[in-house]
Each structure stands twice: as structure tokens, then as C-alpha cells.
């Protein structure tokens, strides 16, 4: 049972961190489940708020709780789920595809032009297309800034598994960026050079 002042402190922390917490929930669980994930994380935070010594560390602490809640949820679901086939993604290089396809023939800054066509919202859409098991390490590492060892602890996975998921996640992200650009007409590619 929390004291009234602890409850007030937790409520204030939750209000301050709400946008960031919701953003993480959305990236981990997708838009449909994000709100529910935040709620469950806040309830769990109530149970363990007494263990938070440094209130300044509260932002990170809430994110850890939310990630744990999400991990427990997907663990139940993925027991029966199939492995996502990642075919030849390991060898995909967006950098080289851009050189080969040359979608901006008169540009000296091809790669920058390509990235410049994406708004933050576009990048977010691309990110949400990735399978959760690859998206989660990517988001925790590059959006939230957790170290790879911390991610391994958070997701309760061996470090080697996290490193290989990060690698595949980056490659899937590169390929999804290319596919999205193609769909949205950011690039005019030559069909003859169409890659597999």
C-alpha cells in the first residue's frame, strides 16, 4: 500500500513521462495495444514504487517496467507463433541498393536525398512494419538509448541473441525504408535494375 505522498509522486512522474511512455509502448506493442500496455505498466509501477530509491531515475524505471510487462505478454503469445522468415535480409545493404539503383541521377548527395524524403512520421510508419521481435531491440537501443547488455536483461535473452536480432532488425529496417520509398514514389527506380 502506497502512502498518499508516494501515490502523488508516482502520479506526477506518470504525468511527466506519459508522452515518452506512450511512444515506447506504441513502438513495442503497436498502436492498438499501446494504451492498454501503459495502463498495465502504471498498475505494476504502483506495486513496486516503494523500491524506487532515486526518484530522479523514475523515467528510466517506468520504461523498464513497461518493457517487462510487454515482454511477459509477448512471451505468452509467441510460444505458438512461427519464426519470422528473414530470407536474404542479412545481406541487404540500403547504401548499395541506392548506389546501384541511382534514384536521383543528377544528385551528388544521393543517400542524403533519400533520407531527406522521409518525415519523422514516415520513419515511424516504417518502424511499425517490422516484426516486434526485431523492432523491440532496435527501439530500445536507438530510440531509448539502452545499452545492449541492459536490453539482454530486460528481454531476458542471451546477449548474442540480442546482437543478432539487432543486426537483423537494422537490415529489415533498411529494406523496409527502401520498400516504403518505392511505394510512396520517393524514388523513381529503373525496373531493369529491380532487385529481388
Amino acid at each position: 500500500m502506497l502512502t498518499a505522498s508516494d501515490t502523488a509522486a508516482l502520479q506526477q512522474l506518470a504525468r511527466d513521462e506519459l508522452p515518452g511512455l506512450y511512444g515506447l509502448a506504441r513502438h513495442l506493442a503497436g498502436p492498438n495495444e499501446a494504451e492498454d500496455l501503459v495502463q498495465e505498466a502504471l498498475l505494476r509501477a504502483c506495486e513496486s514504487f516503494g523500491s524506487l530509491r532515486e526518484h530522479r531515475a523514475g523515467a528510466r524505471w517506468l520504461r523498464v517496467i513497461l518493457t517487462n510487462v510487454w515482454r511477459d505478454r509477448v512471451r505468452k503469445e509467441t510460444r505458438t507463433a512461427r519464426e519470422v522468415p528473414v530470407d536474404d535480409v542479412e545481406a541487404f545493404s540500403l547504401y548499395r541498393v541506392l548506389v546501384d539503383e541511382d534514384p536521383y541521377p543528377y544528385s551528388d548527395t544521393l543517400h542524403l536525398d533519400f533520407l531527406g524524403a522521409f518525415t519523422d512520421g514516415d520513419v515511424d510508419t516504417v518502424l511499425l512494419r517490422l516484426p516486434p521481435r526485431y523492432r523491440a531491440p532496435l527501439v530500445l537501443r536507438y530510440v531509448e538509448g539502452f545499452a545492449t547488455r541492459q536490453i539482454a536483461q530486460l528481454l531476458e535473452l542471451p546477449l548474442g541473441t540480442v546482437l543478432s536480432q539487432l543486426h537483423r532488425g537494422r537490415k529489415l529496417f533498411e529494406r523496409a525504408m527502401w520498400d516504403y520509398a518505392d511505394e510512396c514514389g520517393f524514388v523513381a527506380r529503373r525496373d531493369a535494375a529491380r532487385s529481388v
Binding site: 502520479q11 504525468r15 506504441r26
Partner: peptide, 28 residues
């Protein structure tokens, strides 16, 4: 690309969701 990922902060918290979650926090 790493920089692009870092700034992909999932847009804004929609107003309706913000309202519901704020109410949820109030009820904690």
C-alpha cells in the same frame, strides 16, 4: 540512418488517448 531512427519519436500522443490516460493516472 541511426540518427533518423533516434528522431522517430512516434509522433504525438493523440488527444483522446492523452485524456483517457490522464484520467487513469488520476484514479491511481
Amino acid at each position: 540512418l541511426r540518427g533518423v531512427l533516434r528522431t522517430a519519436t512516434a509522433g504525438q500522443l493523440p488527444d483522446d488517448v492523452r485524456g483517457r490516460l490522464a484520467g487513469f493516472i488520476d484514479d491511481l
